[in-house]
Design a protein around this nucleic acid. Structure first.
Lengths: 147, 147
DNA sequence: GGCGAATTGACAACATATTGACAACCTCGG
DNA sequence: CCGAGGTTGTCAATATGTTGTCAATTCGCC
């Protein structure tokens, strides 16, 4: 199999990632609208939930592939909406630790249930193996770029 | 294989698509900066090149998964920068036909060469079959959302 | 031919994300 | 202990994309 054939497929994947990203943002906004949540805010809730412990803004940014400035703005707005809690960081005067408030936890778990049903619908007709290959390939491409 | 296991993998794919999308935009901006081109403008050049014939704004938007308003803004700016040509549409007084100018064609072909080498590096260690599976899965997910 | 529905361009308001710059803070080596 | 360099929060400018609205145009059906 010649490497020359991989270029065009790779280009198509890039275009499809852009397209699908747009669709997913729209879909996430739609699902979250019931709780006053946008896709971007959902990402923050998810990052905090996955981490399992309070995180700083740069930590969240790193795990999500965003800049710290982008995360900071979201986090500030979400604290005002009582979705997040800021705690003083004993080891660092400026870098506050951020965690989910009770409201944030409640909203996230309700979104998680809603998203599970949607995920099942979207992945109908796609095998587990295909999904795992896709995830692996996307991760390897991300890793190769590694900005 | 239970469907219940597909949900978590699907969620990870969604997060990875967001992350990779951000990386690809950055990388595209970086590669295009030499020619004064951003990722968004590259997408427009690519859509016109792939179509092979002049397109209207809504046609470009449909093929790229963007809204016509987003495409309109880019196209207007790119015409001012002499990357695109507007032609009167014989069949429609308002919807002008848009095509690549000579400058647009030159820039796109240079970007294509640059991107080819980059694609080869990024896809090192990934088989053709894996890439094709990934593209197929992403397309099926896009199709399932089909906003 | 004509009328209602859909398409299209234009404009506005907003959310998201980037880069750049600066000052405050922290860490670590000398 | 202290200063250089990296980290963090903040602010600003810009780019990209969304939704919503309006008027002009086109299309399809009668």
């Amino acid at each position: 199999m010649s490497d020359a054939q991989k270029g065009p497929v790779f280009t198509e994947i890039v275009l499809e990632v852009f397209k699908l990203g747009g669709f997913l943002v729209s879909e996430g906004d739609r699902m979250g609208s019931e709780y006053g949540i946008t896709s971007a805010r959902w990402k923050i809730l998810g990052a905090l939930s996955l981490a399992g412990e309070p995180q700083t803004v740069p930590q969240i940014a790193g795990s999500m592939g965003l800049t710290r400035q982008a995360v900071q703005r979201l986090v500030d707005a979400m604290q005002k909406d009582n979705l997040l809690l800021f705690q003083d960081n004993p080891g660092h005067k400026r870098a506050k630790l951020i965690s989910l408030s009770d409201l944030g936890k409640t909203v996230y778990s309700k979104l998680y249930e809603k998203q599970s049903g949607w995920a099942k619908t979207c992945s109908a007709g796609i095998t587990q193996a295909e999904l795992e290959t896709t995830l692996s390939v996307l991760e390897r491409i991300s890793g190769a770029i590694e900005r």
